[in-house]
Design a binder for these strands. Structure first.
Lengths: 218, 218
DNA sequence: GTCTATATGGTGATAGAC
DNA sequence: GTCTATCACCATATAGAC
């Protein structure tokens, strides 16, 4: 990975050698547009314009706008799962593993904020937008994957309470609060073009630290 | 306040005796629709339908859909400011006041989640949606009010660091993390029709406690 | 595989009757 | 103050040329 990352953070691989790069290119641009203006306010024409083509190309790869949205959402979830996987495999007491997971998640939210912004929009895109049975099925799978992701954190919180490295607290509410604290960054964080990986890691640390240690001194 | 609150949480006063109740009725329904489907996906026709009237009525009170959105947003911010005001006036060390502010904010986010969901949408509704100069001016004021609100928390965090009741931490990032932790509830919280005020207060406590004390035992 | 042209439907907003 | 009727526009999606 290069030391300096641009505003189009970690796009899916677009190198023309790889098969599927055309689709990846569309997904990346759709993610950017959906983040900037929101799914419903973004027209397929706009995505095409910014790709320097017409919507004919997009409709060659995607049957509908919502199917394109689904691919962006799927990609966003994939990045989230991949990010916390190494942390979940580390050995250590319950809190240490949870800390590692939170750090990995914070970094992923910053690095992929374009995609994760779109994932958050998925919460209020529902049955009304998915017309075919296939689309409703896909939507259900994406919702399931979001729940599964939160489940990993709930399980780890429960484990850490069990091994007494965590205070006793409401597992479900705490998971939502912790994830929300990091995920809210979709609203305020935008990558500076010249931002280094080290700077981003430092920001993630500043985000996670108050959650682990709390606010109270002593 | 009644002990049991319905799903239409604390609507603005609609009693037909008060002047402006027609507008308030429209604002409340718009907030509900915008929350459920999002601003852009909601049609003026839909708001009117659910009010049992036609959009002729709405356009009698509002020049455009975005102006209606602005009123919902304004109302949402008003509720937030009013909620933390008493907490800000309490006496006590820096952390005690901050704790009171966070509890008040958490309760307000739950109580008014319909309106606060719309406020969050305001982040990505921008110049493109505001066409007239008047609308751009209004938008600027709403953005300013969001910043001012966050500023209250930043100031209090700084004060608490100064009086040494808080660890030394990044004021700006910590403010965003704390507020985000509570505000993310717009995505997962929906009022149960039979939910009591006491239950909601208990939920707010479960949200704020891990932030104050941190996760680490000891 | 990509383009142009177009069908089709919905949405914001207005005019004018009542 | 509210309704009906309608206009103008824009967006999704398709058909067929190249």
């Amino acid at each position: 990975m290069p030391d300096v990352v641009g505003p189009r953070n970690t796009p899916t691989d677009q190198s023309p050698r790889k098969k599927g790069w055309r689709k990846a290119e569309i997904i990346d641009m759709a993610a950017l547009c959906f983040m900037e203006r929101g799914y419903h306010a973004t027209s397929v024409d706009e995505v095409a314009d910014r790709l320097g083509c017409t919507k004919g190309r997009i409709y060659h790869y995607y049957a509908s706008k919502i199917d394109l949205f689904f691919d962006v959402h799927r990609e966003g979830m994939k990045k989230l799962f991949e990010a916390i996987e190494p942390a979940m495999k580390t050995t250590g007491d319950g809190l240490t593993v949870l800390h590692a997971m939170l750090m990995a998640h914070a970094k992923a939210m910053l690095e992929h904020h374009t995609f994760e912004n779109v994932v958050a929009q998925g919460v209020q895109i529902h049955r009304f937008d998915a017309t075919t049975e296939d689309q409703r099925q896909t939507m259900k799978l994406l919702i399931d994957s979001r729940d599964r992701f939160e489940g990993f954190f709930k399980d780890q919180i429960a484990a850490a309470i069990a091994d007494k490295t965590l205070r006793d607290m409401d597992v479900s509410v705490t998971a939502k609060v912790l994830l929300g604290a990091l995920q809210w960054s979709i609203f305020w964080y935008r990558a500076r073009p010249d931002e280094t990986v080290a700077e981003r890691e430092e920001l993630a640390r500043k985000m996670v630290e108050p959650l682990i240690d709390g606010l109270r001194r002593n």
